[in-house]
Design a protein around this nucleic acid. Structure first.
Lengths: 232, 232
DNA sequence: AAATTGACGTGACCAGAGTCACAAGCAATT
DNA sequence: AATTGCTTGTGACTCTGGTCACGTCAATTT
């Protein structure tokens, strides 16, 4: 499906680009809808495009040698993935799957790379984004260091809450990942995630609101549990 | 201590740079020796320099909210760290400490950034390196997905063996990390690492050769254990 | 409407990792 | 030579999280 420059400018990475540049990129972009559980980016192949998430939620997953899934990161709307293709020609190290029905924009790699190299301000932006990705991975890895598993779950939930919402006392997560998907992010079993959620729900800290919406009732308590100041 | 352009060209990142550029960078570089356990890069401060490791071994470590250490990555001689400063102005997310007496070269951030922005070939190289760092972190994270802990230790040891050595049947790791340092990389206890090493040593797969040298006697077996084809 | 599928919930069991406590070995320093 | 400090080695006990085996429920397909 055709993509307009306006649509491209909805993404934080591309927003600062001049109109003219976006018009040049638009013909190399295509809009694709993915059903839940579909593979969006394949591991092991050299991708010739970068994936921008417009709506839904994506998850990067790796695999251990013995076949277990490993959760690497979540992608929120407005963000992107597969950006390593911009920097080298090695194959993508991980799969990216849709954890909720998703609308994504694929942007051909080479035109974007051109833009990036010709304009130092663009390569600045892309570089900053990649640096942010490293920080995000570091943060995620730090979660795994927590010995108390309920703490990990609370920490993960906290990471899933968008920055703007963190100031207030309650929030929500749209299209939350399943227990299984959280489990592979935190290196724990699906059942253990369920039990953690049970504890959180019985204390009225979180509440499910139908599928596709998780309400954080008491954000302060969630934060305290994530910090280990209090135990579930 | 003064740094010569020749010294700079010993690093894989800087090697491809034209002599002239290296001469421009050299005045902004300084050579520093760090004793074992010393902090090389501090977390939470905006670093104005990038750190290249000449000799020894470094380890990036984060901290959970409750103070536990989290091992993030190892840095081998010829490689570098603190490179996020090249891309943004946010503070360094992690500490970097010397796990063995180390000689490092600090290179001021801004001159290097200039070089990077002015030459697209240089920003290519830096970008590729950062992409490689992401791959490395992914690989490291995947290790944590292994449910069998001996497998994790073997996998970590395998990662510590330099690429060139992986082809042959035996290898060595100079300045190996302590059990404690491996433990925080793999999210396990120090004692558990010791027990894994006991098993490997009694099977004549690895052998300590004084401090600062770990000999891998049977690399093939190590690989098989890392893959879970056989259990300790 | 029935069947199927996928996500969530829950109990029982147990292997295995953490923890604690202490000993032994080794290096550098006094 | 003695001391100090760090690393490694080892046993015993505890307890948590994984696993298995179900059941429930809602949504979607046939």
């Amino acid at each position: 499906m055709q993509v307009t420059p306006e649509l491209l400018s909805r993404f934080t990475l591309l927003k600062p680009l001049p109109r003219q540049v976006l018009e040049g990129l638009a013909p190399h972009a295509s809009l694709v809808r993915h059903a839940r559980r579909e593979v969006v980016v394949r591991a092991g192949v050299r991708e010739d495009r970068v994936c921008f998430l417009f709506e839904g939620r994506l998850q990067g997953v790796g695999h251990t040698i013995d076949g277990r899934e490993v959760g690497l990161y979540f992608v929120e709307p407005g963000d992107f993935c597969g950006e390593l293709a911009l920097f080298d020609d090695s194959p993508q190290p991980e799969f990216v799957i849709a954890t909720a029905a998703a609308t994504v924009v694929f942007l051909a790699r080479n035109p974007l790379r051109e833009v990036m190299l010709n304009s130092s301000s663009v390569s600045n932006i892309v570089g900053r984004k990649l640096a942010e990705r490293v920080r995000q991975m570091t943060e995620q890895r730090t979660l795994l260091g927590l010995s108390n598993i309920d703490q990990r779950v609370c920490g993960q939930l906290y990471l899933l809450i968008k920055g703007e919402q963190r100031q207030v006392e309650s929030g929500e997560i749209v299209n939350p990942p399943t227990h299984q998907e959280i489990a592979i992010m935190l290196n724990i079993s699906r059942e253990r995630v369920t039990r953690a959620f049970q504890a959180l729900q019985s204390r009225r800290i979180v509440r499910r609101d139908g599928p596709g919406r998780l309400v954080i009732i008491d954000l302060n308590s969630l934060r305290r549990f994530a910090r280990g100041e209090e135990e579930l």
